[in-house]
Design a protein around this nucleic acid. Structure first.
Lengths: 138, 138
DNA sequence: GGCGAACTTTACGTTAACGTAAACGTTAGC
DNA sequence: GCTAACGTTTACGTTAACGTAAAGTTCGCC
């Protein structure tokens, strides 16, 4: 079968190419406990789970989180909720993180609105000037 | 008049308290060209404009931007659109920045959704267990 | 006029997130 | 059997964003 939708193993260089980062960075994420690839002898072999994690890492970086924060966040995805007390703490963590994300959304919305106002003002100014130039050309 | 809505000058310690940062950080932002306070002799005096700028700086930091990026962004607020060619470039910059912010919004929306799913799953699990415990108590 | 509080400059220290280079192992292909 | 591609570990270097400490100024107040 040639068409394999979800490739199941990756080399480090392959991942690096796909995500536009260096192999150094990928090994660094492993050092920091964000990835845990299998090994084939000495070589690292990344499975689908690592692939997903790396995607989450990159998304976290785009949002401005530190690697420590990112690790905390992606660890949330595979917590084993064995004890009830742990489960409550886990839910608290989730809620905190979600609140932070929501306030970040508000910050973005404000910024977008402000830059949007600037943009339309500038656009008006530009249209006006170009109209004047067109008129002068007639 | 006692009630002065928008205070017009600030000392550095005053600003530091208000924004929850150190005076060192404020001076550092000045070094990097993000602030430009007036002087009273040797001392820095911050006006309303600096106050606004500092708010924008903090917002930029919450969004994960570097100080360089933040400087570029807040400089957008006081560009003088003298030349038409400059004006076009300016509009391009604004659009780029807005697109970046929008994709950041998407990242946040995805993350919020995923964490939300996790949260309701956990909440269900918790309810189930507490129901079982209540039942056992009856 | 001495003292404390708030401010100044100068300079070295620190942490995160990699970059870069050296020196070495292994495997497919000619 | 050699080399090119790909991988490994180890270790020192670098940049951003401040922290921290030293040494001096200025000002209001008792």
């Amino acid at each position: 079968m040639a068409l394999d939708q979800t490739q199941s193993t990756f080399g480090i260089a392959e991942l690096a190419r796909e995500f536009g980062i260096t192999t150094r960075a990928i090994r660094f994420y492993e050092d920091k406990g964000l990835l845990n690839p299998a090994r084939d002898g000495q070589r690292r072999v990344y499975g689908p789970r690592d692939h997903v994690r790396l995607r989450l890492i990159m998304r976290g970086k785009r949002l401005g989180f530190s690697l420590d924060e990112i690790r905390e966040m992606i660890d949330l995805y595979d917590v084993d909720p064995s004890e009830v007390s742990q489960l409550k703490l886990f839910i608290d963590k989730l809620q905190l993180r979600r609140e932070q994300l929501r306030s970040q959304q508000e910050d973005i919305a404000e910024t977008l609105a402000e830059l949007g106002r600037l943009e339309s003002q500038s656009q008006d100014l530009l249209n006006e000037r170009e109209a004047r130039r067109t008129k002068a050309a007639v």
